[in-house]
């Protein structure tokens, strides 16, 4: 208890003198009160019970809020912005002449943020595949009238995007190749004339992504599809 050895400056004479001073002690009444208090059982601390409700309530609010937002997000119909839908249409016309290029630039200005999403990529893929058909079609469309995206095509794009999101949400298995990449490969095979491989690839693709809406030319009847 006494640890004075580590202090060389300690004055034993002063210490001895200090011991000569009357050494008061607490009163007996105080002793008894404290001993009585010491005999009381440990009271459960109120702070322990009060410590939890606030964090628990905050966590509950957070979980409920996130759940609500996610549920609303799932249930709300997805409606892409019209400008976003129209952008690929302008891009499709990019190779048709300077007038179309000007329209494209205007469209870019109208839609300031580029949307490198599935819709535009799908549209580009379809455009590449149908480039010859589109060239034919655009020849008959007057250049002064920008061709509005057909309703069927818009729905198709929307369907693809939703299917892609659905597959993401529902935790469908992810494959090493993304659907768009896969479809590009199949299209490339077709262009090279390797129709058998393309057909096999398309069947494989449909097995993996049964709900994924294919571009129009992929849905042709088998005999016509084989001709592509």
């Amino acid at each position: 208890m006494n640890e004075r050895n580590d202090h060389s400056d300690w004055d034993d004479e002063i210490s001895a003198l200090y011991r000569k001073i009357p050494q008061p002690v607490p009163s007996t009444d105080l002793d008894n009160r404290l001993l009585q208090a010491a005999r009381q059982p440990v009271q459960p601390s109120a702070t322990k019970t009060r410590r939890w409700p606030v964090p628990v309530a905050m966590a509950a609010v957070l979980v409920l809020g996130i759940g609500l937002v996610r549920t609303m997000d799932r249930e709300m119909p997805h409606s892409p912005e019209p400008s976003a839908l129209q952008t690929p249409q302008f891009e499709a016309q990019s190779g048709l002449g300077s007038r179309t290029m000007a329209s494209e630039k205007k469209a870019d200005i109208a839609t300031p943020a580029p949307r490198p999403d599935a819709e535009s990529q799908l549209q580009r893929l379809g455009d590449r595949e149908n480039s010859s058909d589109q060239l034919e079609q655009h020849r008959v469309i007057p250049e002064s009238i920008p061709a509005p995206a057909p309703l069927r095509e818009q729905e198709e794009i929307r369907g693809r995007a939703e299917a892609e999101k659905r597959s993401d949400r529902q935790g469908q298995p992810k494959f090493s190749r993304a659907p768009l990449v896969w479809l590009q490969e199949i299209a490339a095979l077709r262009r090279k004339g390797r129709d058998a491989e393309a057909k096999a690839g398309l069947e494989e693709f449909k097995r993996h992504y049964p709900d994924y809406p294919l571009p129009a030319h992929f849905d042709l009847p088998e005999q016509l599809s084989d001709d592509l």
């Binding site: 008061p24 002690v25 105080l30 404290l34 208090a37």
Partner: peptide, 27 residues
């Protein structure tokens, strides 16, 4: 108890205050 009581007593003004401090510490 004695040492702690004197530690309190020698650093405050009165016995009453010293007893209060002493009691608080033990409680």
């Amino acid at each position: 108890k004695g040492a702690l009581y004197r530690y309190c007593l020698r650093q405050c003004s009165t016995t009453a205050v010293a007893e209060e401090l002493f009691q608080d510490v033990w409680l």
